[in-house]
Design a protein around this nucleic acid. Structure first.
Lengths: 183, 183
DNA sequence: CCTGATATGTCAACATGGCTGACATAAATT
DNA sequence: AATTTATGTCAGCCATGTTGACATATCAGG
């Protein structure tokens, strides 16, 4: 098992899978980064998955309770913008989180149609537990980088994100805008 | 719409969601990186999703044809290691890719039970098209970084990946081992 | 005050892509 | 010859995404 037979498994870094190689490709595929992103994200979310299983939750629940915990008072509409899913999909997991006491709702004071969402202590504990796991991995990865390297990672990730039509949460993250700025 | 009311949406960078704050937390949650990874990956895979839709494919198909294209001669077992899914799940999408001529099989020469997988020209074209899209985003994100910054990003991503029990593909990526090394 | 737009909830149906369990076949290994 | 291995396949379940339709409460404007 795991018996190796790397038949024709070749192809080092920068060669396209056979074809157009004319003058000067302005964007030769970054195969390395593309694949590293796949593996890194796979293992990154994998950390949380195991814990979530014990709670009978999935990734969808994690995302919801995470953002509610981090941005208290988020409305349902806000959450839909952030997660980019439909209200029906959200409703399923949100209902469970409400029923099991990880999140509570409160009517908005200026607009009482809105349901402002807040994580309970129970919800915050779960979120922190998961964030702690993921943070360990991040710290491990940043440990061997100089301060400038860690800074570059942050800049890179920020620059990977779509800028057009940023939702409230994304604006906060990208511009570090304190809540008040947009009120 | 997108009407702003940032009610109690506060919480700048480094404060835990209320609780244990005693002496010196060795791993204060890296909320920023955790969330940046979520958004960055969301938009990163989003690029490919639109194109795939036009082909009647999903992300699952992309992953399969991508790795087959990049590592020709991959066996089914290899692919299962890389993707970490079951053979039944793989079989569904792989069959479609075979039927529609994006991938071909060939019996292994040393072990004729194995089905070595290869992307056809059609498959390679699709993979390259998608990689090109993703590369544009990556290039855009790396553009504003100094060379040392780009290097740091690569190191970071590599360090984010689980090292225990790396599959064949991962070994190639991590150690840049040419195929022969493990044959 | 009525009316229309908005924020949310809900029902029903469907698609994708994971999963398990059971079983079949061919080829390698012992 | 018997067993193990690599792969395929059938059947069904689950999580999580989708669309469409419709109900309710509340806000906002004429």
């Amino acid at each position: 098992m795991a018996d190796i037979n790397f038949n024709e498994m070749t192809r080092p870094s920068g060669d396209a899978p056979a074809e157009s190689r004319s003058v000067a490709d302005p964007h030769p595929p970054r195969w390395d980064i593309v694949e590293l992103l796949f593996f890194a994200y796979r293992d990154f979310v994998g950390d949380a998955d195991h814990v979530l299983e014990a709670f009978g939750f999935g990734r969808a629940h994690h995302r919801v309770v995470h953002f509610v915990c981090r941005y208290p008072g988020l409305t349902v509409a806000d959450l839909l913008d952030v997660l980019r899913i439909t209200k029906q999909s959200l409703s399923r997991v949100l209902k469970q989180l409400l029923d099991e006491g990880y999140i509570v709702q409160k009517a908005g004071d200026s607009d009482r149609r809105q349901r402002l969402l807040f994580a309970t202590a129970k919800g915050e504990a779960l979120v922190e537990k998961l964030a702690r796991l993921q943070t360990e991995r991040i710290d491990r990865a940043l440990r061997d980088l100089p301060p400038a390297g860690a800074e570059a990672v942050g800049k890179f990730l920020r620059a990977m994100i779509d800028r057009d039509d940023p939702d409230k949460v994304l604006q906060t993250i990208l511009h570090g805008a304190s809540a008040k700025d947009v009120t």
